[in-house]
Nucleic acid binder design. Structure first.
Length: 426
RNA sequence: GGAAGGGUGGCCGAGUGGCUUAAGGCGCACGCCUGGAAAGCGUGUUUGCGUUAAUAGCGUAACGGGGGUUCGAAUCCCCCCCCUUCCGCCA
């Protein structure tokens, strides 16, 4: 959420930022409500000041026993009452109006983010690893998994419909092994603290991380009114909501291995086969809470932590920085890591690491006391996948497939797979 | 699901209609004291909004949220949200 004062101070910069995202200028409309509100507040406060003064006087006069004078003063205050009552109501409405308008405005891109319209304008930062070569036509993950007899979309459809999967035996174990491997890496080597947190959140928390009100249709809601998390970012980031942190506590680094639930409302027809796009999938998430000064360095660090997972699994990838037009709603700068999928002969997103500035912190009211003793400041929040477990499994199946249909287990995972070296047909 | 008790500055906690300008304590900051520290003593220490060059000053609001009573509400009344405890059910 934006600070209306920042917009007031520099409306041109605000509109410029929106245009980089391909959106029309909005400062004029917002500032119109803002100035209406401020004019209104001025009048209201004058009336309140007068009422307060008169009321105080009434108290004194009554103590002195001058009833007649007290009655005269009461009559005077009565004239202000209606104005104040309706004025308070109007102020509330105007505040709500401007907040509602601000709540659906996306974050603005950081300086230096490549300008562009859509994913074609994203910029590659670097690549890592060798794409594997095959002396046969590499198959896609769903063909491999189904042939192994360990991946079942048909039965999943009977239970739950499209975009669900059932994994069995070695593949079910691989899913769990990947989660453990990633969490262990981030906690033992990257300084993140493992967290277990709710998968169901209430409205306020979803608003805090900017999933609401705009992306309601991408979420699942329970009969209790809770929202199923589309990412552990939602739970982890909210751990600091409504808190006043000490500067020395920052940065806070958290990780969690959780299921994620997404309605995929806008993705009809996209990636309909296989495990790439599911209503339910697992992910190991990284979240950092920092000071504004720490955020940029933390972002690079987080990216490196996510990349390390792929390096240890020896999976080729490339890293790109998203252009202004392709970034998510709350992001000021986003790196995507795309893993090489031989079966598709394409790079596919496996992680997205974003810094959101104070965008979520404002919505959550998450602040810290600076060490220099000055007034509270909003924290900065960052999040990244480290990594999407389902898609990592896809990458392993496709990159480590053998001509006999089996799949070699990456060495780094073998300790988590009971020492097994291969996944073979059931 | 049933019953009861609660929600007050960073934290704990007092406060049933006007000297509450939210007591007191903790924590924190600075000073005194000390060889240095602790203890002790003293001073200071909420946030939002408006105005402003200003984190100065002034004004205003805020005691979970909203509405009501009143000249005046943390305090009285109504509705809602949330938390805790006990009982029931239960992995």
């Amino acid at each position: 959420m934006h600070d209306i004062k920042t917009i007031r101070d520099n409306p041109a910069a605000f509109d410029q930022g929106l245009s980089l995202r391909g959106l029309p200028a909005q400062s004029a409309a917002l500032l119109k409500i803002d100035s209406e509100k401020r004019d209104h507040i001025q009048k209201l406060q004058d009336a309140q000041a007068r009422r307060n003064a008169l009321s105080k006087e009434i108290g004194e006069v009554m103590r002195a026993g001058d009833k007649a004078k007290a009655e005269a003063l009461k009559a005077e205050v009565a004239g202000l009452k209606d104005f104040i009552a309706s004025g308070e109501e109007a102020e509330r409405l105007l505040t709500q109006k401007i907040n509602d308008a601000l709540a659906v405005v996306p974050n603005l891109p950081m300086e230096g983010v490549p300008k562009g319209k859509d994913e074609h304008d994203n910029k590659e930062l670097h690549t890592w690893g060798e794409k594997p070569r095959f002396n046969f036509e590499p198959r896609q993950h769903f063909d491999i998994g189904e042939w192994l007899g360990l991946m079942d979309f048909e039965t999943a459809a009977k239970l739950s419909g499209a975009r669900f999967v059932i994994l069995k035996g070695q593949l079910a174990k691989l899913e769990r092994a990947l989660g453990l491997f990633m969490v262990d890496l981030h906690t033992e080597h990257h300084g993140y603290t493992e967290i277990y947190a709710p998968y169901m959140l209430r409205d306020e928390a979803m608003f805090g991380v900017a999933q609401l009100p705009k992306f309601k249709e991408d979420l699942f809601q329970t009969t209790s009114g809770h929202w199923l998390i589309p990412t552990a970012e939602a739970s982890l980031t909210n751990l600091v909501r409504e808190r006043m942190l000490e500067e020395k506590e920052l940065p806070i680094r958290m990780t969690a291995y959780t299921p994620c639930f997404r309605a995929e409302a806008g993705a009809a027809g996209k990636d309909t086969r296989g495990m790439i796009r599911q209503h339910q999938f697992s992910k190991v998430e990284l979240v950092s809470i920092t000071t504004p000064e720490q955020a940029e360095a933390e972002h690079s660090r987080m990216l490196a932590c996510a990349e390390e997972v792929l390096k240890r699994l020896k999976l080729a990838f490339r890293t790109i920085v998203l252009c202004t037009g392709d970034m998510g709603f709350g992001s000021r700068k986003t790196y995507d890591i795309e893993v090489w999928l031989p079966g598709q002969s394409a790079y596919r997103e496996i992680s997205s690491c974003s810094q959101l500035g104070d965008f979520q912190a404002r919505r959550m009211d998450a602040r810290f006391k600076p060490a220099d003793g000055k007034g509270p400041r909003y924290v900065h929040t960052l999040n990244g996948s480290g990594l999407a477990v389902g898609r990592t499994m896809v990458a392993i199946l496709e990159n480590y497939q053998n001509d006999d249909g089996s799949v070699t287990i990456p060495e780094a995972l073998r300790p988590y797979m009971g020492g097994a070296e291969k996944i073979t047909r059931a």
